[in-house]
Amino acid sequence: MNITTVQTPTVIGSPAGAPLRADGGAHGRRSAEPSPAHPSGVTATARIRAAHNGRATTVPLLHSDGPFHLRRLRAREEQARVCVLGAMSAPLGGDRLALDITAETRARLEVTGAAATIALRGPTTAPATYDVRIRVDDDASLHWLPEPLISTRGSTLHQTFAVDLAPTSRLLLREEQLLGRSGEAPGHLTTRLTVRRGGRPLLDQHTAYGYPAPAWDGPAVLGPHRATGQLLLIDPTLDTPQEPHVIGDDPAEGHAVLTPLADPQALIATAVAPTPAQLRHLLDTALAYVYETPRPEAEGEQ
């Protein structure tokens, strides 16, 4: 029972690093047909399900849809790996996108992205939505490490991350947001992150950046920084309480803090920085700090 990777001719050979273009472009959504005057946006739900067959992690469900082209990567030791490729420019205004990721009991799965996701205005000012639903069952592990999301001028995107964790599961989640391309004002980007562990709420967070969010660029929220992100780590083997750790001593270069949530087996790093590279460096530093003491299963995210 091996896999059904959905591949369509337009997707094959679409290089992950190719520039995404709002007007459709060579790999865009409207390359095959003339664009309708008021397109209603794309509705797509891609699904990934990983299971453990007693010997290894398999990926019995890999369902690509719309802009999400899912590709299996070579496993890294016990960890199955899936990469999300952008098969068309998305999200654009009016899109309804969802990604369901499930790691069943004892499965070890890593999901990465091949390139940044770029939220563009598209043909309409209607908001786009992007909902990521993550479930990690008992003794399973999921790394969700996509590339940054870039909010561009005129776009409106509402994202949600709903994470449901079994008490013995492990999660590493990275989320990075860039507000505007270089020198560009961002669109409007909201993100709701809710994490439940063993059915109990663990983390509930809502961010809103870009006009009309009030004072999002003011000194209480992001200040001058245009890159922000978080790293969330939930690991039942974290038994020694982690002291808060401040990273970065020059605020102009970006700074971060790594702290335990009220549940001490959950750690979160929150970072703001002027550039995506500085942001990634702060989050990588935070992760390295967690596993500073040697741990056999520890693994960097390079």
Binding site: Q205, T207, L222, V246, V257, V272
Partner: peptide, 22 residues
């Protein structure tokens, strides 16, 4: 349920509160 309650967050308030506490 409680997810209906606002959960708005401000990264700089979070980061600088820990700096200040130190």
């Amino acid at each position: 349920g409680l997810t209906a309650l606002p959960a708005a967050s401000a990264p700089l308030l979070d980061i600088t509160s820990e700096q200040h506490a130190a």
